[in-house]
Amino acid sequence: MTTNGFCEEVIIAGFGGQGIISAGKLLAQTAMKAGRQVTYMPSYGAEVRGGTANCMVVVANEPIANPVVTRPNSLIAMNKASLNKFGPRIKPGGLLVMNTSLIDTEPDLDKTIEVLAIPIDDLAAELGSPRSANMVAIGAYLQKKGHLTPDAAAQALPEVFAKRHHQTLPVNAKALHRGTEFAANGS
């Protein structure tokens, strides 16, 4: 949180294996490359094994004091449990990116919160890369918030994935753009 100026606090949450951690790292890496201040804080240890995973990313123009996000501006909820846990914490006027592939209920949230309902897993599956769901989510989120571009995120991909996974870079870039496209056009 900063005294003034731009400050975006995001929580990305889902279950282990959904790429929550790399989604957060990508956001952080993209923000850093864009010259922003950024902090990234993952859930760790037992939680990761227990099936839920989340991470908190703060992007700001000024040095960030607190990296622990309790009231996010934005939530990317990849499954129902995450929506139930973090949904009520979204700040008024905030954004919810909700994975309707795995969430079949309407969220009961403050009316000022913008909801982007997007079938994240389905879109990734259509691209032939179910594991790129996290990238679809980030693409959609960035399109809505506009503080970083999906292209910048695509450029940051090689730094987030280990070299042995670099053959997945093109499809992940595609997934980013697919998310962006869906957020822009609603389809």
Partner: peptide, 10 residues
């Protein structure tokens, strides 16, 4: 502490 160890910053 755990946060400082786990969190990433530029």
């Amino acid at each position: 502490d755990g946060i400082l160890g786990q969190m990433m910053e530029p």
